[in-house]
């Protein structure tokens, strides 16, 4: 069960308010009429399916109904980052790997957490809600 910070509402809400909408940052081909079958099929159907850090599109379906992005780990399910449409992720698989090399693992900016993980983040959220 996720506890997700909507970047537009600025509040943590339960997963049931949201819908996952698949991989984020997929650009529609600029010139669809002149796109080959291979390119069009790749755009429609072929997806990254990483075992690790993944950037996803979500919608706050029964809240503000806005789309936004989540960077999440697909094994631990930890939410690493939430950011608005049009923005780029600050945490990626590459940035995490290099951070891990330079020092101990230190990820996330607090505040977004799955239930069942450490509750320090949940405390943060209570602070931000008021």
């Amino acid at each position: 069960m996720f506890y997700i910070l909507c970047p537009y509402c600025g509040e943590h809400r339960e997963e049931e308010e949201f819908h996952p909408k698949g991989q984020a940052h997929i650009a529609r081909p600029a010139d669809p009429e002149n796109t080959s079958d291979d390119e069009w099929g790749d755009y429609l159907f072929f997806r990254d399916n990483p075992r690790g850090v993944h950037h996803e599109l979500w919608v706050h379906a029964v809240g503000c109904r806005k789309f936004f992005n989540i960077t999440r780990h697909t094994v631990s399910y930890e939410i690493l980052e939430v950011y608005k449409m049009g923005e780029q992720p600050s945490i990626t698989a590459e940035s995490l790997a290099s951070a891990e090399k330079s020092q101990g693992v230190q990820v996330g900016d607090g505040g977004q957490q799955t239930v069942g993980a450490s509750d320090s983040a949940a405390k943060d959220s209570r602070g931000t809600k008021v």
């Binding site: 069960m1 996952p20 996803e56 999440r72 094994v75 399910y77």
Partner: peptide, 13 residues
């Protein structure tokens, strides 16, 4: 569950 996951567990809802 609608999201991608390799954790062999899903959400309670």
């Amino acid at each position: 569950d609608g999201y991608n996951g390799y954790g062999q567990r899903g959400s309670y809802p």
